[in-house]
């Protein structure tokens, strides 16, 4: 329990550091936010008045604290360009990006764990060697390029889905998920390849340990040793990797949304970056960072459950 509390504390600390970095990064940008809101024709008096209203004259740390507390409460500020609350712009988009990331993650887990086991079991066999080469190739393909190829092959030639025919979850959740399958595949592909490679290596390492020999000496057959003994040990480093992969996949969906013209948060993020609409950028970046940090915390918790040795010094 102490371990989890400690990890929770570290999560909060990381969140504070990240938010401070994000806040400062957007504060050193030259340009007056009040001026940005009002446009260049506004009178200096009005600009000064708005500056005071926005609290821009306060010290940096005060402004940071205000911004952070507002963020926690779900108040992400007002868009410079659209003059509407940022929350109203992005909240309805988050489920799209998140669903896609989680689908890709589930695909990765479901596909790569059996494949890792099969390749490790038949180490250096024909299947193992071909999968290893195919994996190397897949890892070399950027997800957006595989996305383009998937659109071409499965969308245009095989007509398994309509490119650009995104259906929002508010209209039909089934069709929404169905459209997201191929984008999720594009995100998952390189992660599957990496996970297979990693799990395979980990399984082979573990199979050479002393406890595996002990397991054989008790009359276990190969499967018994593999599933009852090695797998749980081998999966431990893979959990860390999968945690990082989930974060990567959520971030990677920014690119994939462009490829498949999915109106998730990616489009808002990119237009806001080119329009220098900083409150929106800040909110999205902080949102994704928060998800990533929470995922990392959950990974630590899962770790503690799987590996009894973790966190011993704290208890």
């Amino acid at each position: 329990m102490k371990y989890i509390i400690k990890k929770f504390g570290m999560m909060v600390a990381t969140l504070l550091v990240v938010s401070l970095c994000v806040f400062l990064a957007f504060n050193i940008i030259p340009g007056d936010p009040a001026l940005k809101m009002l446009g260049t024709e506004a009178s200096p008096e009005l600009v000064e008045q708005v500056r005071a209203e926005m609290g821009l004259n306060d010290p940096v740390l005060v402004r940071y604290a205000r911004w952070f507390l507002n963020f926690i409460r779900g108040d992400f500020g007002t868009s410079y360009n659209y003059k509407v609350p940022v929350g109203s712009m992005i909240l309805s988009k988050i489920p799209i990006t998140l669903t896609m990331g989680i689908m890709a993650f589930l695909m990765t887990v479901i596909v790569s764990i059996p494949m890792g086991i099969v390749t490790a079991k038949h180490e250096n066999g024909l299947l193992d060697r071909s999968i290893t080469v195919i994996n190397q190739v897949i890892m070399a393909i950027p997800p957006f390029f595989s996305g383009i190829l998937i659109t071409f092959i499965f969308g245009m030639i095989l007509r398994l889905f309509t490119p650009g025919g995104f259906v929002n979850y508010t209209v039909s959740f089934g069709k929404f998920v169905r459209y997201l399958i191929f984008p999720a595949v594009a995100i998952a592909l390189p992660k599957v390849a990496m996970t297979v490679k990693m799990l395979r290596g980990s399984l082979i390492d573990e199979s050479q340990r002393d406890y595996a020999r002990t397991a054989y000496s008790r009359g276990n057959n190969t499967n018994g040793v593999l599933y009852r003994h090695i797998l749980k040990n081998a999966i431990i480093p893979v959990i860390t990797f999968l945690g990082m992969a989930l974060a990567d996949m959520i971030a990677g969906s920014i690119v994939i949304e462009q490829v498949f013209s999915i109106p998730g948060i990616s489009r808002i993020l990119l237009t806001s970056i080119s329009n220098r609409d900083y409150p929106v950028v800040e909110a999205i970046i902080m949102g994704i960072a928060t998800i990533v940090i929470v995922v990392n915390f959950l990974v630590d918790v899962i770790y503690r459950i799987v590996d009894p040795r973790i966190g011993l010094e704290d208890e």
Binding site: D210, Y211, K232, N233, R309
Partner: peptide
């Protein structure tokens, strides 16, 4: 055959090793 051999291992013929630190499964 391997099946016969396995039926003895751990039941009729047992073995203990030099390294007790690493011979037990750490997560069980």
């Amino acid at each position: 055959d391997r099946k016969t051999l396995r039926s003895y291992q751990g039941d009729e013929i047992s073995i203990i090793f030099q390294e007790p630190m690493t011979s037990l499964n750490p997560v069980k």
